[in-house]
Amino acid sequence: MKHVLEFEKPVIELREKISDLRTLTENSEMDLSDEIITLEKRLEKLETDVYDRMAPWDRVQMARHPERPTTLDYIHHLFTDFLELHGDRNFGDDAAIVSGIAKFNNKPVTVIGHQRGKDTKENIRRNFGMPHPEGYRKALRLMKQAEKFQRPIITFIDTKGAYPGKAAEERGQSEAIARNLMEMAGLTVPIICIVIGEGGSGGALGLGIGDRIFMLENSTYSVISPEGASSILWKDAGLAQEAAESMKITSYDLKKLNVIDGVIPEVRGGAHRDILTQAKEIESVITESLNDLSTLDEGILLENRFKKYKNIGDYTYLDL
């Protein structure tokens, strides 16, 4: 494990210690099994303490973990025959969004997701998973294709946000995102959206209108990054931890706010610890959702989708 997050340091240190003792026992006369057993018990307790009580800020770190599985990682574990398809037919191909056709449980689907890199080189190529308008337009093109051929759509959300750049503005970043929101609302096929890392604002939502919205336990979904919120609201980017609490951005917060349909449990210590197990968790959620949605009549599907969004929000009336 190359990247250790601050809050999980005690766990990692203890785990290393146990592993050292094991090596020692194996390579020498000394028998340290008793100590190892004691320490393993302590590790179990420590892991529970650390990972079952993660603060919002800890989850923000986890969602940004450099080793966290990306869209392509999950695609390879969840689907067969994935064929990536490129380009918006208008301007270019945005590597910050990957998309294509594949089979899920032997049935055809369209898969789309934000794609960040895992090292600097790939991150530069993928613009750190921050799309330009052509990325959203590529996504829309393939969603329309999915609708034509009546394939369900599965999207993976994992972006800090749409790219705030000059060219992006010139080519209509706002329009591209807005168009996706409206068009996704009207697609006559089931759409399942899963936040796997960071769900950053409009750039995340641009792939996020659907019939079922899920979040991995340690992912976040927010109108603005905690850093951005603290610098705008309190003129101090250093208050990001407080902002992470106040903004209610964790999967459990969003479930409570009735914005998402469910939290997908994560492997203890984060999805990157065991992507196979994590993919299984995701697989069962997709299977269940597709079972529920695929029997619905088009009209009902769209009516339900409208109601789902109509119900989001909290307001009252002035006492007169």
């Binding site: 409009g202 996020g208 209610k248 914005v259």
Partner: peptide
């Protein structure tokens, strides 16, 4: 995030 979702709501 409720604000963010109003973008979705109005667009739907």
């Amino acid at each position: 995030v409720l604000s963010l979702m109003q973008m979705g709501k109005t667009s739907v």
